[in-house]
């Protein structure tokens, strides 16, 4: 199965946004996802990035991009300014996990979060074999990894529960980007390499 721009979660996210929606992409890189959503889904997009090279690349891509550190909050954005706030494969790199999730649902109606699942069976097997996992969704060696938080699907769901966040949809993918079909959370936790969640909160 081939995926748009090689990132399986992008297709899932594209399926959740509607034309005219306002989308904020945190840690948007060079703006590839936003450009895709703007071109194929007709959204109005804004990205946040900390890295100079990505700022330059995103401006080249014609994306609205704001340079900033999302760990320090999203002060420049008003409450409920966006329909979707996306955090694609970035949650595991931030330290202020709860703060970032809170901010996402302050500025957005819904949060879309994707992250690598450390409980994926190949990752577990790798650890059992004595080595930290390196895979499609965890492409770094332990010594050069930007990841600072190591958690599983079930860990994440427990945090959402603790924070009172509502999981509206869960889309779990294997390493090939194919959807894992199972209603059993324990099975999904074992079979899924990448998880994509749609979250909201009670108002």
């Amino acid at each position: 199965m081939t995926h748009t721009l090689g990132r399986a979660d992008f297709d899932v996210i594209a399926g959740w946004v509607k034309p005219g929606h306002r989308v904020l992409d945190l840690g948007c890189g060079d703006g590839t996802l936003l450009k895709h959503l703007i071109e194929t889904r007709g959204v109005h997009g804004v990205g946040v990035e900390i890295d100079d090279a990505n700022i330059l690349a995103a401006i080249r891509n014609g994306i609205n991009i704001v340079q900033g550190n999302l760990e320090k909050g999203l002060d420049e954005f008003a409450d409920q300014a966006f329909d979707h706030v996306v955090l694609s494969r970035t949650l595991q790199t931030v330290r202020h996990t709860e703060g970032v999730l809170q901010e996402m649902l302050r500025v957005g109606r819904e949060a879309v979060v994707s992250f690598p699942n450390f409980a994926y069976w190949k990752n577990l097997r790798s650890v059992l074999d004595g080595r930290m996992p390196v895979s499609e969704d965890l492409p770094y060696e332990w010594y050069d990894s930007p990841n600072v938080r190591f958690f599983t699907l079930l860990d994440f769901e427990a945090l959402c529960d603790k924070m009172g966040l509502i999981i509206r949809e869960r889309h779990v993918l294997d390493e090939q980007g194919n959807r894992v079909h199972s209603s059993e959370s324990r099975d999904v936790n074992f079979l899924g390499s990448l998880a994509v969640y749609r979250l909201s909160r009670n108002r």
Partner: peptide, 16 residues
Amino acid sequence: VSALLANHRNVSYAEI
């Protein structure tokens, strides 16, 4: 930047 974003203007911001 914040006031422009609140108005849904196209804006990019670089902190150099």
